[in-house]
Design a protein around this nucleic acid. Sequence first.
DNA 1: GCCATCATTCAAAGCGCTTTGGTTCCGATT
DNA 2: AATCGGAACCAAAGCGCTTTGAATGATGGC
Lengths: 343, 343
Amino acid sequence: MNLKELSLRIGLSQTTVSRALNGYPEVNEATRRRVLEAAKQYNYSPNTRAKSLATGQALAIGHVIPMSTKHEMVNPVFGDFIAGAGETYSRNGFDMVLSIVPDRDEESVYREFKAKGNVDGLIVHGPRMNDSRIDLLNEIGLPFVVHGRASGQTLPYSWLDVNNTSAFKRATEFLLDLGHRNIALINGLETMDFAYRRRKGFERAMAERGVATNPSFMRSDEMTEVYGYQTAQEMLRSENAPTAFLVASLISALGIRRAIQDAGLVMGRDVSVVTHDDMLSYLSNGDSVPVFTAARSSVRDAGALCAQMLIDIINSPNENPKSRLLEAELTVGASTGPAPNRG
Amino acid sequence: MNLKELSLRIGLSQTTVSRALNGYPEVNEATRRRVLEAAKQYNYSPNTRAKSLATGQALAIGHVIPMSTKHEMVNPVFGDFIAGAGETYSRNGFDMVLSIVPDRDEESVYREFKAKGNVDGLIVHGPRMNDSRIDLLNEIGLPFVVHGRASGQTLPYSWLDVNNTSAFKRATEFLLDLGHRNIALINGLETMDFAYRRRKGFERAMAERGVATNPSFMRSDEMTEVYGYQTAQEMLRSENAPTAFLVASLISALGIRRAIQDAGLVMGRDVSVVTHDDMLSYLSNGDSVPVFTAARSSVRDAGALCAQMLIDIINSPNENPKSRLLEAELTVGASTGPAPNRG
DNA sequence: GCCATCATTCAAAGCGCTTTGGTTCCGATT
DNA sequence: AATCGGAACCAAAGCGCTTTGAATGATGGC
């Protein structure tokens, strides 16, 4: 069923039917009702391709998922982010189109998105430091919102981010308050902007209290369970092992807990752990009582907010870039306790 | 840059340019080269919307992600599946469009996909038993491939699935061979077809060896870490605790391992664990030595294969439904050992 | 009763592409 | 020389929608 057929059956012109359906004022209310009725009856939905060809709007938003060619890892955060964004899109009549792209091809994909005209804007995932994509998108002229930020970027752009620096600063302070001085930082890949900021927060808190950081207890890698396990195991075996771990991901924190238990130690008594928690739906941090003391911030909510920002930008272009900084919430769980007295 | 402009600059008609770009034979090779050259020079990519309006092909494939309204959980498997599928799509010039849909709205979404014409086909995720979506899609006439199967479905349809029954049967036999008799099954939600099949495999192996199953040691729920932890904890505390756990997900297995350790037991010695492993990129099961004995099957590969199947179906319709059954591979890790002798 | 006004409706152009049904040109056939 | 056929190209229609510009009645003021 297309517009032509529908209008034929109703006995009206395509123009009027189209206007009735799209809520234009110059159509009689009685007529509009008739049209809406018929549309429902015949199960009519306008063809998106035709519609967007006519309007110049794609009614779709792109997500480019960079796929590192080296470490073939899909960001585990991604599913939840998409879920949050997707709901917002549906509510606003947008489709979501996904591109999985080997990171070296990224530039051409963005250009193609513009040329092919199949999205009205896009969300930039996983910003790196001095991320070149931001300049590129500005040059291309495609509206976008960055999930995260790109340190070193001078031109203004729209973004939504968790305040990683303050979250990790506060988490560090929490450990320092408990008496911990020998704190390990198990960070994400520091090519990623968020990881850089988290380290900054950690270092700032340590510096402010005059506590030295130990470079051999600061690691940076992809945040798997095994990474957490191996790193923690190694550190716990070392001379002068850390009494506390500050971790960038709940998944790695699981590995750290395992290493602690393997070493015959008790988490929360012998060794403390504070982690960042993206509140992934399949990885809840305990039920009523949180297992880990954590800086929490819902990635899913972030997805919904990013989507809304982008839609606003698309609907009213020429405005200045917007940004939004979310604060993570520190929730105290069973994984932290006072620093043990070392003989 | 659009076709009109491009052909004007080259000094050819739109027809010829279009044909040159699309590889039609009735164009002089020298001309074709000239056209391709110019296209590259001006960075021309045809507008997808126009192209698909003209051809009737959407050049896109839909993924409907059902979002349970009760348990707001995003299937953790999803990211990896998408990654696999996405690569195949790009290679074939297809876009991937995602819809996050509250499960009660699913039917209307499928109908809309057809009416709006923005996809050429779709992948059905998370099939349930007697899943009504299959009949619906057949009725609507939209090509589709199911990732998994729907027991109770009589009409033929295309699917790709892991042989869950045989995987769990074999895993159970492995435990039985080790002398275990008291085996717990920590299953996924049994409204899901895969979970039903896994239980069947478990029960069948037990029955064949004449070992009774214990209903209070067979659980079914969403596969979170906490679910594994709590369930295992409870079972381990009970009279006559199981000596082995058969688990449907590596994530829940992590929780089970935690419960085992909390109980002061050693996994692989006091209690054995075999898990299904979807080989998610961020949850690798150990590095060289697998941590868990596991039935492994890459969800990412499944995504790539599903995508290819669907593209084949789209390209040559009217053929009979195709299907593909993958066998999971049983890899022995450190989490299993002979059944302990109980005093 | 007449013309301006307004509320409704419509025909047709246009979005950027593919594709049908030519047309043109040139060498080969008779 | 007239005709044919094939290679190479082109004009224009059509995909299903929106939107411009115009038409049609009905209404109301004078």
